[in-house]
Nucleic acid binder design. Structure first.
Lengths: 240, 240
DNA sequence: ATCGTGCTTATGTCTAGACATATTTTTTCT
DNA sequence: AGAAAAAATATGTCTAGACATAAGCACGAT
């Protein structure tokens, strides 16, 4: 075992097991030695081995079932994760000067599509607002948002004009559950105008909906400027 | 504590702490009681509390630092995760009959863009192949793939014509590291023809590159059929 | 053969205690 | 006062042992 000084023990066991899988010393569908045996081999407690194997199972590399043992996943369904945070930070991290403009905001009844997203009755009064986020003066992304005031009683509708709602919500309305989907759309006339691109341009769209204990909080359609790529956090999950 | 019979103890502690955050009983930036105190409150061992808090830190809700203690993240950067598996399964899961056609495959030198993706010298001989995946006879997604044979010595280039490479690779070439990015592009002439859509149609593009211990394995550009949405696994990570 | 019944086994999870490590805080020395 | 050294403390991680639980397996009765 290449016990590198850096890593914790569980981590280094995971790395070693991962290597054995990738090097096909242990093959797809095969059963691997049980926790107790691995504990002896790696000179660790069973709990430590368990932790390592759990990590790999979360990654999708292993299938584990009680009594049946641990086997290498036949077709590993691996996971990739994305961060969703504050737009301003993304812009600034790209080395650009952040700007923000509220284009419209008003109270209006939920149309069918939005109501379905949120699980609220059609016609429910929601705050709708559109804003553009800029990087170095050029449009970075466009957000079209519907907010359920019932789920965020602290939000003062009067302050919406000035507020960066994205930031306010992230900081003041943590959510319990979120759904997120990517798709692509041709820029409609409004998108084109606000993002300053030509009509029909392909836009990456992120639709995001969040809930807390009071119900749905908000659903947003975010349109990124052309050429923008949303990529996985290059963080750990796979190491070395 | 609403100790629901279903959950494990660590899980139920996590749920309770999450509730306190969402209900703003513990506010952003505030420090929460330390593990030892929570262990007493929840009548659990410290290791169990630790596990629960780790989960929340992974979710992005908590910031933890040695000695400094645990505090609620000021701007929670939450994570969303996507599964990447076998195309056929996605198609079948959508209730469609799967079909697959290899459009082209040949050995050719890597152009600059691809070489950069893979970290190989320009001109390196790679297998390039394009294939269309169908659902109920209509194009579902289009893959344009470059394969580094050095990283998958088991792959027989002669069999490529018949093979479903996506499936073969997933099963036979598990990777150590992957990068994945979404973007949007207007369909070029070739995309339009193969996906049977009109030229200029907005397409959701997923660019994916994987590595194992022998180096880069493959990089793929996947173009989804219009209207397709790639969404988060509605799985756990946030519960109840 | 077929269907239960109960034994066995591998993982799931928890516990209590220990030591490691990063920081902060305090003390001590210049 | 300011810098360096020492103490304190919260999290990080491991260990050994325990019990819970799902699921395979064998045995026996029909």
């Amino acid at each position: 075992m290449t016990d590198k000084r850096a890593g914790a023990k569980a981590h280094s066991i995971a790395t070693e097991v991962r290597r054995r899988i990738v090097e096909r010393r242990w093959r797809q569908g095969e059963r691997i030695p049980d926790e107790a045996e691995l504990a002896i081999e790696f000179d660790a407690a069973r709990a430590t081995v368990n932790k390592a194997l759990q990590m790999l199972a979360d990654e999708g590399l292993l299938d584990r079932r009680r009594r049946a043992g641990t086997r290498i996943a036949i077709d590993p369904v691996r996971k990739a994760s994305f961060s969703i945070g504050i737009v301003r930070e993304q812009v600034e991290q790209a080395g650009l000067v952040y700007g923000h403009r509220v284009v419209a905001h008003r109270l209006s009844p939920a149309p069918a599509g939005i109501a379905a997203c949120l699980g609220l009755p059609v016609g429910e009064k929601l705050v709708r607002m559109r804003a553009v986020h800029y990087g170095d003066g050029t449009p970075f992304q466009l957000e079209d948002r519907w907010i359920n005031l019932r789920a965020v009683p602290d939000l003062d509708p009067a302050s919406l004009r000035r507020l960066n709602v994205n930031e306010w919500l992230v900081r003041n309305a943590p959510y319990l559950h979120a759904e997120l989907a990517f798709s692509a759309e041709n820029a409609n006339r409004r998108d084109a105008r606000l993002l300053q691109v030509r009509h029909g341009q392909a836009l990456l769209i992120q639709q995001r909906t969040t809930w807390n204990d009071l119900g749905p909080i908000t659903t947003v359609r975010v349109a990124f400027r052309p050429g923008h790529r949303v990529s996985t956090d290059g963080r750990a999950a796979e190491a070395d």
